[in-house]
Amino acid sequence: MIQFAGAILVLFAGTMIGYLQAARYAARPRQIRQLTHALQRLETEIQYGQTPLPEALSRIAEVVPPPVSGLFSEIARSLAGGTGATVRESWEKALAEGWGRTSMKQPEREALARLGSTLGASGREDQLKHVRLTMIQLQTEEAAARDEQNRYEKMSRSLGVLGAALVVILML
């Protein structure tokens, strides 16, 4: 009886591990899409609203779902806090603290870091060019993430179940 309960627990744990990994593959393209949407809103705020950057980032954080919203709210909080931090410093700090909560990978982080180093340091047109360039880079990464999702999502689920089944067979 105890062996049977242990086998069920191992099967359940292995299956959940596979499904959690598959969920990360599914979350990455969705989060990149959310990030691209947030940058489109930032572009609009810069171009038409001429809104101050902390306020624009706060507005974006309100519309974008977590965990992406956390990045923008942290940057806005840091800029509005009066700590004297530059946009670049605030941006890098938010990426360092909040990136682990996302499913995105290094190429997306590098694109955002490059954008953060140029925002607030140049004219409006130059900033718009950098935002558009970052959106193009993110769209490319989203396509790659979708390919990766199609390739590995189902395999992760299957490996979780089959790996757990193998462990159960070896236990018995």
Rank of each mutant, 00 (worst) to 15 (best):
R30V: 13
V131Q: 01
I32V: 12
G49I: 00
A38K: 01
R109V: 07
L95V: 04
M135A: 05
R151I: 04
T134C: 15
T44A: 14
A94W: 04
G116R: 03
P67Q: 07
R77H: 12
G98Y: 06
I60W: 03
Q139S: 14
R101K: 15
R33S: 10
P54Y: 08
S69M: 07
A113W: 07
I75V: 15
K93R: 10
R151N: 04
V64Q: 09
Q40K: 14
R109S: 06
P67Y: 05
T83W: 07
R33V: 04
A121S: 13
E62S: 09
G49N: 04
A121C: 03
V63A: 15
K154T: 10
L35R: 03
S58D: 13
R101A: 14
S78E: 10
Q106Y: 15
A111W: 04
S78L: 10
L35Y: 02
G84A: 08
L39C: 02
R41E: 12
T51F: 02
V131A: 10
D147I: 06
R146H: 04
L133C: 03
G120L: 00
I32G: 01
R124C: 05
L42V: 01
N150G: 12
K93D: 09
A38R: 06
E55W: 03
G49W: 15
Q127W: 06
E110G: 01
A94M: 07
P107T: 13
I136E: 12
P67D: 11
E153H: 06
L71C: 05
Q106W: 13
L39P: 01
L71Y: 04
S69D: 08
R88E: 12
A113I: 03
L95Q: 10
P67T: 07
R88Q: 10
V87F: 05
V64K: 00
L53P: 00
H37L: 14
Y48M: 00
D126N: 14
P67S: 11
R124P: 01
R109P: 02
T44N: 09
T140H: 13
A80P: 04
L57N: 04
S122D: 11
P66D: 13
R59F: 06
Q47N: 08
E45L: 14
M135Q: 15
A85G: 11
R157D: 01
A121D: 01
R88C: 09
A38T: 01
L128N: 06
Q50R: 14
I46L: 13
L115A: 08
